[in-house]
């Protein structure tokens, strides 16, 4: 019988973890963000203005996003970056703009609107160059989210002291990594069913995708297991967690077959910032949806004070 709350999930911290990510951030800094906004009249409504947003990220790639701003109230607004799940495309975040946030819904590299250069496919992203931390598919993907925050930091209509991150599954995992890489910029993080935590443990606990991609990779490349473990340690949320300073909401489904709850509990134990944990019995990867969204909205409102 599983005991998710007390299960051991261990990840080795690479000795050069900080240098590795500092190098990535330094690469990004070589490229001006060069944000370009194009208003989208048919996507805009009486309450929200929607823009197509493009900016430059790691390696010089142009990254797409939707940017939605409330018509009501007065700028600067609190900023929110919403991060998509593994198989989903970012939707136009009108619902968050209606709540008072200037919201950037990012399509990191490989998503449909950002896949001109990098397109590992789905399935495929999780194991793309997984034997090499320097060229692993998630390298640029993680940094794209960091760059999205930097876009908001530069926006005159955003209060750069009130920027939050929201996402579930992959969006939850990248909320943790982004908050760790930009500890001074992020005011709060809402992370549901966080993926990419305990990356080598998770495939031993489930046969669901996307973690099943690792099982498949190792089925035909069994000798690569050590190199895979070495790579994903640089990307594991458990290694980012101690660097997060922003208050963090974690919510978990206790029967989550996609992101095993053992890994979510391990993340919660590893975070040293102010945390709030909600667990949902009999819930799987939805982790309390739709009811949990009220919890998320209240958490973000507490820390980002829309309408202030």
């Amino acid at each position: 019988m599983r005991d998710p709350e007390n299960a051991t999930v261990e990840v080795e911290l690479p000795a050069d973890f900080d240098d590795f990510w500092a190098a990535g951030l330094a690469d990004c800094a070589c490229y001006p963000l060069d944000p370009v906004l194009t208003e989208m009249p048919t996507l805009s409504t009486d309450t929200v203005i929607v823009y197509d947003l493009r900016f430059t990220s790691y390696g010089g790639l142009r990254i797409a996003a939707w940017y939605a701003v409330p018509r009501a109230g007065t700028a600067p607004y609190p900023g929110l970056v919403t991060i998509p799940g593994y198989i989903s495309e970012p939707t136009v975040p009108k619902e968050w703009a209606e709540l008072g946030y200037a919201t950037l819904a990012i399509a990191p590299r490989g998503k449909l609107r950002s896949n001109d250069v990098f397109n590992p496919g789905y399935p495929g992203l999780l194991t793309h160059n997984i034997v090499d931390p320097n060229t692993y598919g998630y390298r640029g993907f993680y940094l794209d989210v960091v760059r999205a925050v930097e876009v908001l930091l530069d926006r005159p209509d955003v209060d750069n002291l009130r920027i939050g991150l929201q996402g579930s599954s992959q969006g939850g995992g990248l909320g943790i990594s982004t908050a760790a890489l930009l500890p001074d910029a992020i005011r709060c993080v809402a992370a549901g069913a966080p993926y990419l935590c305990g990356i080598m443990t998770a495939p031993t606990l489930t046969r669901s995708y996307p973690y099943e991609e690792i099982n498949e990779y190792l089925r035909i490349h069994p000798k690569d297991v050590d190199r895979v473990r070495e790579t994903v340690a640089y990307y594991d949320g458990l290694n980012f967690a101690p660097k997060v300073q922003a208050p963090t909401l974690i919510y978990l489904g206790l029967e989550d077959d996609v992101c095993p709850p053992e890994t979510g509990f391990a993340l919660h134990r590893t975070l040293t910032c102010e945390t709030t944990l909600h667990t949902y019995p009999h819930c799987a990867h939805h982790a309390g949806l739709p009811d949990v969204m009220r919890v998320v909205e209240d958490f973000l409102a507490e820390h980002l004070t829309p309408g202030r």
């Binding site: 198989i87 989903s88 495309e89 789905y122 046969r207 995708y209 099943e212």
Partner: peptide
């Protein structure tokens, strides 16, 4: 509705 469908689960 979406760009990706999940691969059938091993079950």
């Amino acid at each position: 509705y979406g760009s990706v469908n999940n691969i059938p689960h091993p079950n």
